[in-house]
């Protein structure tokens, strides 16, 4: 019964994984292969594609292809840093909250409820307006605003696991809360957390690109897929597609991660594969 769904979905992880691996390769190796610098001006503004500049040049005369590649490194790296931080914060507190229960759980839950009640985008704007836009501030602010979602899902999955009898057995032999969390809860919540990691990555990636687009993300002259669209947007008025290339790259990566994540989630939710 499960087999047919697995068979039918087979193309999904392959396409998804190909996209993700390709993007990662570009982000890691790409910058070393590019003939120009990230912010190097190599021609006139908006040169048409040529053998030297396969995708043309941008508003300041920089090579678009080079900036796309550097943009991959910057955008993916930034989003990864944020997700990791958000998980370190949200997932550890979520699992701890589920394991310790009572007072700790109540306080942490109310705290994260409150952050969750705040409109993310608006608050990012407010915080960045006041604190100014620098890389550490950006990472911390976005990770902080995203962590309640990670907290909620970790806490929910933690509570679900902690209600199982093997956790009770651990409590009955006198294991500490931290011991239970590390030995019993965490290994069993990993599948859920990994697929949640994929979803959060997509969300944060898009969120940061929106901030960059608004001029509040990575600051020029660093290349970022969001701010590249903004810089070159005027060209769209002339019917050109070039300014949207970075946006397509964003969408492609988001689709890739989505495909892999959905497949993983389906596999893991399926006891037949155990």
């Amino acid at each position: 019964m499960k087999k047919s769904s697995r068979g039918r979905l087979h193309w999904q992880p392959i396409i998804g994984a190909t996209i993700v691996l390709f993007m990662l390769a570009v982000a890691i190796v790409g910058p070393f292969l590019m003939p120009y610098g990230e912010a190097e001006i190599v021609g006139f503004a908006f040169d048409l594609p040529s053998p030297e500049h396969p995708l043309g040049t941008d508003v300041l005369g920089r090579d678009v292809m080079t900036r796309l590649v550097y943009g991959a490194r910057n955008s993916i790296g930034l989003a990864l840093a944020v997700v990791v931080l958000s998980f370190l914060f949200g997932a550890s507190l979520g699992l701890l909250s589920a394991t310790l229960g009572r007072g700790v759980d109540f306080v942490l839950s109310r705290f994260f409820d409150l952050i969750l009640a705040i409109p993310q985008k608006v608050f990012a704007l407010l915080l960045l307006a006041i604190l100014g836009t620098s890389l550490p501030v950006l990472i911390i602010v976005v990770a902080f605003l995203d962590s309640p979602r990670v907290f909620r899902i970790s806490r929910a999955i933690g509570l679900e696991i902690n209600a199982l009898d093997f956790v009770e057995t651990a409590r009955l032999r006198g294991d500490s809360g931290l011991g239970i969390m590390l030995r019993e809860t965490l290994p069993n919540s990993l599948p859920t957390l990994v697929s949640e990691f994929g979803l959060r990555f997509c969300f944060i990636f898009l969120f940061i690109s929106a901030l960059s687009f608004l001029g509040l993300g990575l600051q020029p002259p660093s290349a970022d897929w969001g701010n590249m669209v903004r810089e070159n947007a005027s060209l769209i008025g002339f019917g050109e597609m070039m300014p949207l290339y970075p946006a397509f790259a964003i969408a492609l990566l988001a689709v890739g991660v989505n495909l892999v994540t959905e497949w993983l989630a389906e596999r893991w939710s399926n006891p037949a594969h155990e």
């Binding site: 929106a210 903004r230 769209i236 949207l244 946006a247 969408a251 989505n258």
Partner: peptide, 15 residues
Amino acid sequence: CVSLPEFALGYLMIL
């Protein structure tokens, strides 16, 4: 639609 950044969708409309 969910994967495309919001601003890109807007520019595609304009285009």
